[in-house]
Amino acid sequence: MRKIYLPLTKKVIKTLRLGQEVLLSGSVLTARDAAHKRLAETLKSNKKIPVSIKGETIYYTGPTPTMPGRIIGSCGPTTSSRMDQFTHILLRHALLGMIGKGERSKEIVSAIKRFGAVYFITIGGAGAYLSEKVKNSKIIAYRDLGTEAIRRVIVEDFPAIVAVV
């Protein structure tokens, strides 16, 4: 299976094929509904967001609390379409990759293609398994959001399928 190293580049994205199974290794940010709402509102009012998303990949997940002796709790993907309403502005600020589950809206599919970005799906409901692919995790913004805080996560051989490119 093809290995992809993160952060992504537009050049690498151009070589990805729809439906291709890949293993992702490197750095991703985690963010879901509440963090997306806050990021989008901040960007819309021309204020600075607490983390740069340029060239980043966002993984839509809200993990369970971390048990002692583990790196992260169960951390499967959440439904991506709920993030559609906030995705366009993030793409405009150079977000390159997204990982989640499920289909995206027509508008977002065409926006992802237009911006030369990529959307991967991974296996929903496999939270325990996917947590074993995480090698490091640290909250870097919006700590008050609890499970919905933004984390910097290092993954290794994280299974994904190219869903929109």
Binding site: E21, T64, G73, I123, G125, A126, G127, E132, P159
Partner: peptide, 23 residues
């Protein structure tokens, strides 16, 4: 391949006492 991971996830969750799903 996906079913294999889903099945493995259930076995792993039971063995390591991890939630099957984060939700």
């Amino acid at each position: 391949g996906v079913l294999d991971i889903i099945i493995y996830n259930a076995l792993l969750a039971r063995k390591k006492r991890l939630p099957i799903c984060q939700d």
